[in-house]
Amino acid sequence: MNEQTEQKNQIPAKKTETAEQQIRRMSRRSILQGVGAVFLAGALDHWVNTRRTRQGIPWPLRRGLQINEEFWHDLASNRHLAPTFPPSQITHARTNGDVGLGEDQDIQDWQLKVSGLDTSNGGPSERVFHLDDIKKLPAYTIITQFKCIEGWSYIMQWKGARLADFMHAYPPPLRTDDNGNPLPPMDGMPAYPNFVSMMTPNKSYYVGLDVESALHPQTLLCYEMNGKPLTQEHGFPLRLIIPVKYGVKNIKRIGFIAYTNRRPADYWAEQGYDWYAEL
């Protein structure tokens, strides 16, 4: 260090103060500030934890999640595909979560009820589908990494119909502008209602999806896993595979689908998790 910078680095001492007194004063001030900061941090933590609960967590944390999810959701698009893998990397299936499954499902008793359909062409607003109706749609097979919000992941093969194809075949009404005119397509996608709600037949497990993710080309109404029909514990006969989201959104045994412009209820979002659960 040369003489000049050394001069600059000295702070002018008060005339009456020795260097020792000066640094003691500065230390005192710094330590008081530090103690103050610790109390402030403690108070802030206490404040956060004592706020009203909004869907399972204090509202400041919920706001934080919402801002984050909106920010990252802006970056999400149908151009971002989840990575796919060769068959040699397929791993065994882990079973996790049985909320909404209840008793084993008999295929004769199963049906998929869809509500909120377009009635402008004279069709019904509700329709009932059976597995064969889904299998009539073009089938896609993908091998993706199924990621649980807990942190584990498995590479699995899924076969099913694109939810987008199903929606185009049995469309919900288009959103309208203030004058009631249907909105034009955006990013090549019809202006369907903003949200899709899905529920198990017993309605005890339910997920809400943003329509962009529902229309993602890798989002499947899935009936086969690793080359075999879905097992009971994996959601026989029809489940959702949505690789752009955590496992919690990949609802097993779909019994109901509804289209809506209001954000639907979501089982795990109500327990304090991020509503999008997007990857």
Partner: peptide, 20 residues
């Protein structure tokens, strides 16, 4: 956090499990 939107980054660090 975002292994789909930043799939290239996840690949770069050796995959999802390796990243964790």
């Amino acid at each position: 956090y975002k292994p789909t939107q930043f799939a290239w980054l996840t690949r770069l660090v050796g995959g999802y499990e390796t990243a964790r």
